[in-house]
Design a protein around this nucleic acid. Structure first.
Lengths: 147, 147
DNA sequence: AATCATGTAACTAGTGATGTTACATGAAGG
DNA sequence: CCTTCATGTAACATCACTAGTTACATGATT
């Protein structure tokens, strides 16, 4: 089971918002993501706290992007979500007194730190604008196949 | 919360077994790991199925290593444990019909695949013998400080 | 004032490792 | 043979966390 799909969800939501004129309601986003509107609000609220989106109540309310797509990287979104744990693996005692466990933690910890650094680096290199362009390319491709 | 510390646990257990003469009981290993003996049996059983350790019942029974420490890598142990999920992040729909989600999955999936490949590569390069040597070095260091 | 949408609390569901109890099975020693 | 010791395994509880759901308050627009 995937433990945390929020980064994927907010990316999906943000791209839909980028392609959409005017604010989108939590319910509309929930239909796009096949997710519950309350969960959408809960997750988007973290992006609002980070200054990436804004929400408005009442008629014609909803969510809209207030940041430049070119400057928002996946890493920034990951941070906005509270930097949830990336790895499902780990060790129980962080600072063990046992020398054996220290050796284990050193080896395991280094490999995982390298993998995490690589992932965060990749996240930092991809912006919402990149994804929007990739979507546009896929969209054009499908239209070309049909036409 | 760490979801899966089994790799760390079996490494810890195997190194203790390597430093110990004769088989070690689940209860003794449980004391080393601060874990429940039944959990130890459950986890070590996977290594037994992979041919890395053997178990014996009755008096003077317990667990012992039957593989060459030089040839057992962290990756092989990870495989013996059933290759549990490495990432805590992911997306919900693997093959979405939505083009937006396809673009998201492609970007996210590639970054995560790279990170996973790096981690598995690092795991493949570290053997139990390497860890045993690292432990011996740490042990000598501590004795030097005391003496 | 009615309607619409967010804000948020409170609770449930689902997942997977880990903890725990209980009991069967087999091996060694008296 | 029988007791003891240790694994083998089933069954259930616990824990942590995201996601789903219900309910209601708050604020903005018409």
């Amino acid at each position: 089971m995937i433990r945390d799909s929020r980064l994927s969800s907010v990316l999906h939501a943000l791209l839909h918002m980028a392609e959409h004129d005017g604010p989108m309601t939590s319910e509309a986003l929930g239909r796009c993501l096949a997710a519950n509107p309350v969960v959408v609000r809960r997750t988007m609220g973290l992006l609002r706290d980070a200054g990436l989106v804004a929400s408005e109540r009442g008629h014609a309310g909803g969510w809209r992007i207030v940041a430049d797509l070119e400057t928002v990287s996946l890493r920034r979104l990951h941070e906005a979500l509270g930097e949830p744990a990336i790895h499902a693996l780990g060790h129980r005692h962080e600072t063990p007194s046992c020398l054996v466990e220290q050796a284990v933690n050193a080896a395991l910890g280094q490999a995982m730190a390298e993998a995490e650094a690589l992932l965060l680096d990749r996240f930092a290199q991809v912006t919402l604008a990149d994804l929007a362009r990739d979507f546009a390319r896929r969209h054009a491709e499908v239209r070309a196949q049909k036409g």
